[in-house]
């Protein structure tokens, strides 16, 4: 009899730790042939609440890291992704044999490197020193908003998810992301990779489960400053209605049309800008 391999219990990466859903619920994850692979945590609003707490705790420290340091940590994520590239590709192929799995993994790694290089540059492009007509020195800096809720797309379970997380954390935001429901396993691996990437616990919190459980709470949670969602019209409506309660920022990727996650404009400065607040400071110039 051959050796029975040890299977991994998928857990969500939350506050730097690996957790099961507080609800104790799971859903079955099956491969493309319909065979059982594992049980995935079915996170609920309580897990979201906990993730928000963890992200809030991590936020100030992450935002205060030097830009150089954040850049090195993002680069470290790329290194860790590269070291597990085959495993990630296999995870993508598991549920979607037609996916360009290796290409998606390579793109995800390159995207991470791309953002690693932005941490100490976006500020000088988006901020400004403003020539006001009074004797004041006036400058605008770009600050992270705070806590960002993310609803990742169903497709491109690694590249889509990372493409949404990276622009937010580049500037010092912390995120709570709900992974693809149908293809959750890459997010489980991503959590394990992030855990060994020098990324402080709580900066990225990854949930699995259904949008029905998470979306309403994500829309209305007062502590989240923005929601970034790949969403259809009815989801967008619900998110915006909830967001209005606390004047939350919303950024949508309409999911009616397929999103080209490989495109050049799926990354870059203007994605980072979505999750920044401009702060302008005035000071007199005198002796």
């Amino acid at each position: 009899m051959s050796r029975l391999p040890i299977t991994k219990t998928p857990k969500c990466f939350l506050g730097g730790a690996f957790i099961r859903s507080e609800s104790g619920r799971v859903y079955e994850h099956k491969d493309s042939a319909g065979a059982f692979v594992c049980n995935i945590p079915l996170c609920t609003r309580k897990d979201l609440r906990n993730a928000v707490e963890a992200a809030a705790k991590a936020g100030p420290g992450w935002a205060k890291r030097s830009a150089y340091n954040r850049g090195q940590i993002l680069y470290r994520i790329a290194e860790m992704l590269e070291s597990r590239a085959d495993e990630l590709a296999a995870a993508i192929s598991l549920t979607n044999p037609n996916a360009a799995a290796s290409r998606e993994v390579r793109a995800a790694i390159d995207r991470t490197v791309h953002y690693a290089g932005w941490t100490d540059k976006y500020e000088s492009l988006l901020g400004s020193v403003n020539p006001v007509s009074t004797p004041h020195f006036n400058f605008t800096v770009m600050e992270p908003m705070g806590l960002i809720g993310i609803l990742a797309p169903e497709e491109s379970p690694l590249l889509g998810l990372l493409s949404m997380i990276l622009p937010a954390i580049t500037s010092g935001n912390t995120v709570i992301a709900l992974a693809s429901h149908g293809e959750p396993y890459p997010s489980i691996l991503l959590g394990e990779i992030l855990a060994v990437s020098d990324l402080p616990g709580g900066v990225v919190n990854l949930l699995t489960g259904t949008r029905a459980d998470i979306l309403p709470t994500m829309a209305t949670h007062a502590h989240l400053r923005a929601v970034y969602a790949a969403a259809n019209k009815s989801e967008r409506t619900e998110i915006q209605q909830g967001a209005a309660e606390h004047v939350k920022r919303t950024v949508f990727l309409p999911s009616e049309k397929p999103i080209d996650w490989f495109a050049d404009d799926a990354q870059g400065l203007y994605h980072i800008r979505h999750f920044l607040e401009a702060k302008t400071t005035w000071h007199p110039v005198g002796v």
């Binding site: 004797p135 005198g286 002796v287």
Partner: peptide, 13 residues
């Protein structure tokens, strides 16, 4: 100056 407090030039002007 610490005792009597400073003056801001732009403010006073």
């Amino acid at each position: 100056i610490s005792e009597i407090g400073p003056v801001d030039q732009v403010g006073i002007e």
